[in-house]
Amino acid sequence: MGTRTLVSRVQLNRPRGRIIYWSVLGLTVLVFTLVFLGPLYMMITGGLKSTQEAIQDPPTLYPHHVQASTYHTAWTQLNLAKLLLNTLIYAFGALLFQLVFCISAAYAFSKLRPILGNAILGAMLATLMIPAMVLIVPQYITAISLPFIHINLLNTPWAIWVPSVAAAFNIFLLKRFFDSIPQELLDAAGIDGAGPLRVLWSIVLPMSRPIVSVVSIFALVAVWKDFLWPLLVEPDPTKQTLNAGIYSLSQGVPENVLIAASAISAAPTIIFFLFFQRNIMAGLTAGSLKG
């Protein structure tokens, strides 16, 4: 039997059916392309416009007088090099902590099976139902005075690194992948004398590179795109991330310069996705092993 599709082969073999099919398909692709790439195009070209043209209503579709120097002005006037360095430090620090704690938690839930492990995992996943804005106040109070040790984390990288560890979704993704690893491999390693940590390091992690890559990308992008939390816990503009720093230093800055700064801040994540899109798709679809 042939593969069932939305449009039958008989209809596609007819001239009218082919015309309708390709017309609908082309229109759909065009609409979605405009929806997703339209704002990006307007942001990039907005940084090439003059101030008057950037604030013009209705906006122009392309810059009538290209001013490429606006990007250089945004880079120097808003000190984007420093903000970019801050963001890289925060992002890769959060990535390190997430990999250590999320992989450990997922491995424990999947293979070590602690007492009440399912209940704890269920409680962690339940936090995904809570809107992020609701947690801002308790997280801020916790950052002001860390429980038991009473340390103020404000204006330090720890204020961004510590909350990033609580990534229930990443733990769930890792656990689901670890569940697909045959228990026989781990039992064989245990018979050879390997402990739980050695099994994790030598067997589980090498087989989990696709999902670890996806979790790493999620961790980096989460810190990169975050705005409100870095703005609250890093009040010093020189220590803020790109998004928060651009907002803090935006007073008196022309509109076209701000648009250019926004385009610069978005460029690394776009380039990062273009280079690692195969890893992202492979990691999201990975979850089973062929014997």
Rank of each mutant, 00 (worst) to 15 (best):
N279I: 00
L197A: 15
Q52I: 10
P114A: 04
I280K: 03
Y140Q: 07
Q77L: 02
W229N: 07
I181S: 07
T3C: 05
S262T: 14
I246P: 00
L121P: 00
P196R: 02
F272G: 01
V29K: 01
P196N: 09
P59A: 10
L232W: 08
V257G: 03
I44E: 01
W161S: 10
S208H: 09
T238E: 12
G252L: 12
P235E: 06
R198T: 15
S213G: 10
L146C: 07
Q251P: 00
F178Q: 03
A188R: 08
G117C: 08
L96E: 00
V137L: 07
I171S: 03
S164Y: 09
D226V: 11
M129R: 03
Y41F: 13
G26V: 10
A267G: 06
Y90S: 02
L289Q: 13
V199A: 09
T73H: 10
L34C: 14
K175N: 06
I191A: 06
P163W: 14
V137E: 03
L34Q: 08
Q52L: 06
L185E: 04
I141E: 08
K49M: 15
K49T: 08
Y21H: 14
F109I: 02
D179R: 05
W22Y: 15
S250W: 01
T60V: 14
Q11T: 12
A282L: 04
I19N: 08
T142D: 02
E184D: 14
R209L: 12
S265Q: 14
A222K: 09
R9P: 00
G245C: 09
A166S: 13
A189N: 02
V215R: 01
I160H: 00
I203W: 00
L231M: 14
L99R: 02
L146P: 02
F276D: 02
V215P: 01
I144T: 13
T33K: 07
L289N: 11
V162S: 04
W158Y: 11
L25Q: 10
Y247V: 10
Q11M: 12
L185W: 14
L154P: 01
V204T: 13
A244M: 11
R9K: 11
A94L: 04
L78N: 05
D187Q: 08
A143Y: 05
M281Q: 13
A282C: 06
Q67D: 06
T33D: 09
V223M: 09
A123E: 09
I44F: 15
P210L: 12
L228R: 00
Q67H: 14
P182G: 13
S262M: 08
I19K: 05
V100C: 12
G46F: 11
V223E: 05
A81S: 04
P131L: 04
L232I: 08
I246K: 01
A68Y: 15
I89S: 01
V199I: 11
T76F: 05
D226L: 08
I130L: 10
H72R: 10
Y247R: 14
F275P: 00
A263L: 08
G245Q: 11
L258I: 13
S104D: 04
A263E: 06
P63S: 10
P210A: 15
P182V: 03
P210I: 03
P230F: 07
L274T: 03
I115K: 11
Q98V: 14
P206A: 07
A194V: 11
K175P: 00
Y21W: 15
E53F: 00
P147W: 02
Y41K: 09
L88A: 13
